[in-house]
Every structure is written in C-alpha cells, then in structure tokens.
Design a protein around this nucleic acid. Structure first.
Lengths: 227, 227
DNA sequence: CGAACGCTTCGGGCGCGGGCGAAGCGTCCG
DNA sequence: CGGACGCTTCGCCCGCGCCCGAAGCGTTCG
C-alpha cells in the first residue's frame, strides 16, 4: 500500500526531474496542443530526443497525442495533471534563481490559463469574489453555483439563460504564483471559456498568458472583482 | 518566470525520483521524527547512503533535523510538504502494481495521519460531516469554524470553552487513498490532536496508521460521522 | 579513559538514462 | 512519382548520481 505510494512518487518524480520534460509539460499548461517539433525546440533538444521524452510522457498518462496528417499534436491529458503541476510549482524551494521578482509583475503572474481555467492574480481575485459575494454553494470541497450566483452571472451574460451550471462542480486549485487557491473544475472551465468567447480576455502570443480587454476590465469590475 | 517553475519541478522531481528518498519522506508523513539509522533501514540502504540522501532532503527544505546526543532526529519540515506529497500520491499512473486492492481495506486507507491532521476514509468522512452539518464558515478556500460548529464541538468536548478556533484556518487537502478532499491546516491539526488526547484515536505501531477506539467510534457517530 | 555506537565524509566503481547522428517510415506537394 | 518534410527508431557515447567500504568525528557508557 505504501509501496504503491512510493512507486507513484518515484515515477512522477522521474518524469519531472528532466528539464526537457518539465518544460514541455509547462508549455502545454495553456490547454493548447503542439506538434512534436515545436515542443522539441521549446525544450531545447533535438527532435529525436524530444520524441523519446514524448513517448515516456504518453506512456505515463501525462499527455495525449492526436495524429493529423504528417503532424502529431500533443496536449495535456487531463485537468488532474494540470492541477498537480500547479500545486508542485507552488512549492518554494531554497536557493532558487529569484523568489518573486520584485517590482513589475510579469504577465504570466497577472492572468493565465491553468489548463482550461483562469489562474494568476486575476484567477485568485475571481475566486475570492465569488466566495465573498456568497455566490457559491457547499462550504469547502465540492463547490457549485448557488441561485444567487447563477442570477448574477446570467445578468452579466457570462451564462446563458438555458443552462444550469449549478450542476457543474468546482474545486480549489493551488495557484503557483499567488500561493493561494483559485477555482478549477468544470464550472471554472466553463466560466473561463465564456470570458474568452466574450473577449473579456484574449490569449497573448506568449503561452498561457491572458490579457484582459478594456471591456473585460469593465465587466469584471462590475461583478465586484478588485484588481 | 516559467524557468523558475521548470526549475522547481525539476528539483522536486529529482528528490522524489529516488526510491530511497521517497520511502523516507513517506515514512515521516506521520509527523514523527526518526533517527538516521532507522530511516536507512526503512529505505533499504546502508547508513552512509542514507546520510547522503538526508543531506539532500535537508538542503531542499523537505526535512528538519534535531541533533540530540549521538542521535540526529529527522522530521518533515512543514505541513506544506506533507500536503504536496499527498497530492502527488493521489495521481493514478498507468501500469502500477495494483489499483485499489479490492476487498478488505488496508488500515492505512481507513484512518491515518497526513503529517498532523486526519486523513484516509475517516478523514474524508470527518471533513464532509463538518461541511454537511454546516459548521464551516467561508465557502471554499479559507475555511474556519462558524459559531454553530464551535458550539457543537465544544459540546462534545473536542474543544475547550476557553479557546476560539474560529481564528484557526483550515483548507482542503487532496486525500491520497480516497481521491477526495479532507481538511488540513491549523484547525484540522488542533482537532486531530484533541482526538488523540481524548483517545478517540490511537496510533498503531505501523507508521501513520490510526485506529479508532470504541469510545471514539461512539463520539464520532454522535457528531454525525458515518462510517 | 577506552571501547562501542550513531552518524557523516571520502573515494572509487558502475549502471542508468539523456544526448545526438544516421536511418527508417508515413505524409504532403509539385 | 520523386523529393521534402515531420516524426520515430536504432545505435552508441558519455556523464551524473547511486551505491557501499573504509575512515573520521562526536557522544555515551562501563
């Protein structure tokens, strides 16, 4: 039983202990899919080497692959992987390059995608707004939208009138840069998708990074999100 | 910025990718402290080798050491490490020895310590009871006891009249065996300590494992915990 | 005070795993 | 149909890190 736990830690650790693999996984944390060559370049290794790493990641269940013509597109396998990676990255180990990088906050820390949901300072602020305004049901672990929250989000057109996301669950996910929780799970994914659809947020060219539009800032402020 | 994240993943992964180190860390997940030789034997390596591993774990901030006479006692450095390890162990990787071990549930999965708080099936049931009976304040991420919960736990003598644990925070921690959340944080630590003090639970000889006493089962049932 | 003990440091052996060049395989395009 | 392209497989090299024997250091105890 504990042997099983040790086995998991060893295998999971082995995957991440290689810089090339860690970089590949992180670059896929925006939920996008990328061809093998791009991942190779991004990881700083030749395509042959990358191919080996990718095979290992597939075998371990971390990635899924979608062959399409002469390309093979790789993506993260699940929300679960994204959340575990975020949680691990939130550890603060001694003797690392720079603690928080004082001064101007890098875009990645402002707002980003954690797989399919919102993270970074904005993600944390968003989660705390939902909580503060008492729009969530279920103290603690299995969260969902209560009627009050449902009405509020519909009013601001983040949700359609026909859907009932009280059924969609959310759960806490430790934010890597803020070291506080934001929201993950189907509900968080849906709301993030809506914000992108409505162009409250747009994807930066830089992987994972999200940029709020003027309209988005206005909308979020109206919902009570403080930036 | 993302380099920093990659660095954390690589170093953290490197620590855990070695079976001896993973076993040492897991054996310390009960919050106890153990001398180097015991950890060596437990990890299946000689004392020299263990010493090297322990130095690395100290340097990485995972362990703290307490020299005492000719012994050096090692223990986990923080709650944060325990929670991250539990979260990682909750990943289900393909091709592992046995998925859940069907049939009789091993004691470790029934009730155990996750560092200083209650985990396992009982830990999850306990967390869900507090939630279901609406004894927690703060939907979601930063939890604490509300007046109702405070009164209930005082009535059952899990809390003294003089202390006000509304100030103590709790947060969700992913349970390795149940793959659902139990409660971590100062509040959870305090309540777990009380249960041990009052001999609702006793420590098994086996590391981490907790056993409910007859009195404990009665008390928990009175509080609404379903087993 | 000397021997046993607990633990660490040093030195050297060795295997595993990451690295790339070369080659192989399927796909797309002129 | 042939060549360019995207990717993987094969073969080999090489270095990092795990391992233990031997030795060193501080503590405890008779």
């Amino acid at each position: 039983m504990e042997d099983r736990a040790a086995g998991i830690l060893v295998r999971l650790g082995g995957l991440l202990s290689e810089p090339a693999r860690a970089r590949m996984l992180l670059s896929l944390m925006d939920g996008r899919q990328r061809p093998a060559t791009e991942l190779a370049q991004l990881a700083g290794v030749t395509p042959q080497t990358a191919s080996e790493h990718l095979r290992l990641l597939i075998d371990s269940g971390a990635l899924r692959v979608l062959p399409q013509g002469r390309h093979r597109y790789y993506r993260l396998a699940s929300d679960e992987w994204a959340e575990t990676l975020e949680t691990m990255a939130a550890m603060d180990l001694p003797n690392l390059p720079r603690p928080p990088a004082r001064g101007e906050m890098p875009p990645l820390a402002r707002a980003r995608l954690c797989y399919k949901h919102l993270a970074g300072r904005l993600g944390v602020a968003w989660a705390e707004t939902l909580q503060r305004r008492d729009w969530l049901h279920g103290a603690g672990l299995h969260l969902s939208l209560n009627p009050k929250g449902l009405a509020a989000l519909r009013k601001h057109a983040l949700l359609g009138a026909d859907e009932d996301p009280r059924r969609l669950s959310a759960k806490p996910c430790l934010d890597w840069t803020e070291r506080r929780h934001h929201l993950a799970g189907p509900l968080a994914n849906l709301l993030t998708e809506r914000m992108l659809d409505r162009r409250w947020l747009i994807r930066s060219r830089q992987a994972r990074v999200l940029l709020p539009t003027v309209e988005g800032e206005r909308g979020l402020r109206r919902l009570g999100v403080e930036l």
